[in-house]
Design a protein around this nucleic acid. Sequence first.
RNA 1: GUGAGCGUAGCUCAGUUGGUUAGAGUCCCGGAUUGUGAUUCCGGUUGUCGUGGGUUCGAGUCCCAUCGCUCACCCCA
Length: 434
Amino acid sequence: MSKAIQAVRGMNDLLPEVVERWQRIEAGARDVLHAYGYREIRLPILEKSELFARSIGSQTDIVEKEMYSFEDRHGENLTLRPEGTAGCVRAGIENGFLHNQIQRLWYAGPMFRHERPQKGRYRQFHQIGVEAFGIESADLDAELIFMCVRLWRALGFDGLTLQLNSLGTLECRAAYRRELVHYLETQRGKLDEDSLRRLDRNPLRILDSKNPAMQEIIAAAPDLFEHLDDASRAHFERLGDYLRQAGVAFTVNPRLVRGLDYYTRTVFEWTTDRLGAQSAVGAGGRYDGLVEQLGGRPTPAAGFAIGLERLAELLALQGGSHQGVRPHGYLVLLGEEAERQGLSLAERLRDAGLRIECNGGGGGLKTQLKRADRSGARHALLLGEDEVRNASITIKDLRDGAQRSIAQNELIDFLLGSNLKNKEDKATADERRR
RNA sequence: GUGAGCGUAGCUCAGUUGGUUAGAGUCCCGGAUUGUGAUUCCGGUUGUCGUGGGUUCGAGUCCCAUCGCUCACCCCA
């Protein structure tokens, strides 16, 4: 056992039970995305390292210490993507689909960051990313947030809170940053270790410090909001209007800064108090400068990403262990002749659109019924010597134990009818719930 | 990168101040019923006590090292 190879740290196997939960989220997300006219795009997991340095920012934690980078056989420096936006923008420029047009896109897949794993944070994690290009006005920002709200509702989440901030344009943020650094330099003696480290790297993050000793200094720091240019301020107020009009509650958090350099104006973050220290389930913002920064024409853009591991954990927390897809019938085969006929009978049933699990590996009736029970199938379909002799099949309802024998040529109709009835039962039950 | 906690059966865990042959539940298998599951009863298999070293007459238990996992910090989805 000690020689067994383990998975790479921070990279988890998703077992079927968990995957079924993910699929609920993915299906819900797809419906919402389509409801807003977003189209799926599929992008490489591997990109040239320079792409991330140029977009996320070479001074950020992600680029400085969290990337999975390596040289390939030709000495090219490649990186497993730590986030999706950079690759999406790169693809847009490369394929020319950002040129003077509006694009609404989404993608889903794994991201990689070499951090120390903890609850809700893994080295391979999964996001659904949403990006929209070519719309400068705040109605897009609102649309993105509405999509989130709709998804939370579809999944039955409540208690998520929305935090909102504006960072202004790249220019006014840079100006603010200079002023903030200037102020913090005068307070240098009072800064804690973390803040000193951030001072020249990412001074805005100091505003987000949780150290109580820092609060006084932070409170007296220059206010980012007062440095917003008029257009950015108007943009932010407009977004607030849209949200209030739609009844979407939010909190303005002037300290919400985000760890990626490309954000401009709107940034937002959805958080929960149920997942331990890693509380953000989704976050995003506007990045009007990024397309140009990566070599495209100036193009306004905004997007967000949601963390699938965290959503799945939330879903698990609120219970409701939804069973996945179950077979309609489990085919029990007793005796040589039954085994001979069984496989092709199962095929005929599947041709009719039924999900059939066929007993494999022999075994007595007892064993096979046990397997039938565990398969989750509603009915066990018994084919034994008697049934083979008179072309019949015995159907056992595994829920109430009732049993009946019918002709084999009536089996499909029986199962389809019973399956249809189940669906109706479920529909009326759903209706009653509402 | 830093800190803390934990590694005993496939899984969840108990194991007293160091003391004989390391336990329970669950899971799995068989039987009660040679063609009736889930429930019940009876029986059975589960092991490098993470790994390596040390202390001791004796180590799952104490010490050291090492690996792994978990949570938290930093940061983020």
